[in-house]
Simulated scan of single mutants.
Amino acid sequence: MSALIVIPARYESSRYPGKPLAELKGATGVSKSLVQRSWEAACAVKGVDRVVVATDDDRIRDAAEAFGAEVVMTSSECQNGTERCAEAFDNLGGGFDIVVNLQGDAPLTPAWFVEDLVKGLRNDPMAEVATPVLRCDGRALNGFLEDRKAGRVGGTTAVFTKDHHALYFSKEVVPFTSQTFADEDETPVFHHVGVYAYRPAALGAYPRWDAGPLERLEGLEQLRFMEHGRQVLCVEVEARGRQFWELNNPEDVPKIEAMMAEMGTP
């Protein structure tokens, strides 16, 4: 089954305008833009046939083409990354069995997260959409809680059934727990990793659906599938000692740079 990775990247953002072009310094002191680091992460994934950046902004297009990425221009009317992926897929003429949305704010996404996600969707012929979840250690959970106390939106959390069908996703920390955890402790909270794999039929239907109240309240695009009765498969992935964080706010830049330095990411 052929697979395409689309990296949706938009310049306008209420929380962080120009985020795809934000510079991140690696362990060697070399600075690269967020969109370049996301593209490099996508190119490291095995079993993928094509990687493209999808944007509506000439500045992002020029920057991406300068480091060698293939770019697909999309409409400024796209409301989220899934809609942009759907348009990019159409503009490419289709031809892939699985489309992966590797959002451009997650440069630390390990290749095996995406590989496991694609495998999970391939192995479940009834699933239309899949997304990875990562069990938080105490360090990650405490980071989420610190963000919320400071009034910042950090990572997204997920709860799901024993069959790994999603029950809900939230920018709040769910489920609630009154326990305290040391950095290395295992916790009952799962971090939703901002990657999606779709079958073309589900992806094509998505832009035709209205956004529901939960999607509008949370600002989480995957909730549209659930509000329209589609099951979302949560694929549990393992960190294997790697740290993971998304760039949601300007304050996340030094946090991600510190993680890259610790992991030796160039």
Rank of each mutant, 00 (worst) to 15 (best):
D58V: 15
I7T: 01
A127D: 00
F181Y: 13
Q243M: 14
P213S: 14
M260T: 04
G212V: 04
P213H: 08
A130S: 07
R242F: 07
K149A: 12
P132A: 11
G143A: 13
G18A: 09
G120A: 15
W245V: 09
E83N: 03
P250C: 06
K19C: 08
S38F: 04
A88Q: 01
V237I: 10
A22C: 09
D58N: 08
I7C: 03
T28N: 15
P132N: 10
D56V: 06
L134G: 00
F89E: 01
D58L: 13
E23G: 14
L4V: 08
D147S: 11
A63P: 00
V45R: 00
V45P: 01
R135F: 08
A150N: 15
E218D: 08
G219Q: 04
D163K: 13
V118R: 04
G93W: 07
I5D: 01
R152T: 03
C136E: 03
E236M: 11
C85D: 04
I60G: 00
R50W: 06
V100C: 12
L102V: 09
Y11R: 11
D97R: 05
V48T: 01
G154D: 09
E186W: 02
T161E: 07
V129E: 02
E238Y: 13
V173H: 00
A111T: 05
V51A: 02
V189P: 00
E257M: 09
K19Y: 05
F67Y: 12
S75W: 08
K149W: 06
I60Y: 01
A86K: 03
W245S: 12
P254M: 13
A44G: 02
G47K: 09
D137L: 02
D56Y: 06
A182W: 05
D116R: 13
V193C: 08
G93D: 06
F144I: 11
A201F: 08
E146L: 13
W245M: 15
P8T: 13
N248L: 15
E172N: 12
C234T: 03
T55Y: 07
Y16W: 14
S2Y: 09
T28L: 14
G212T: 04
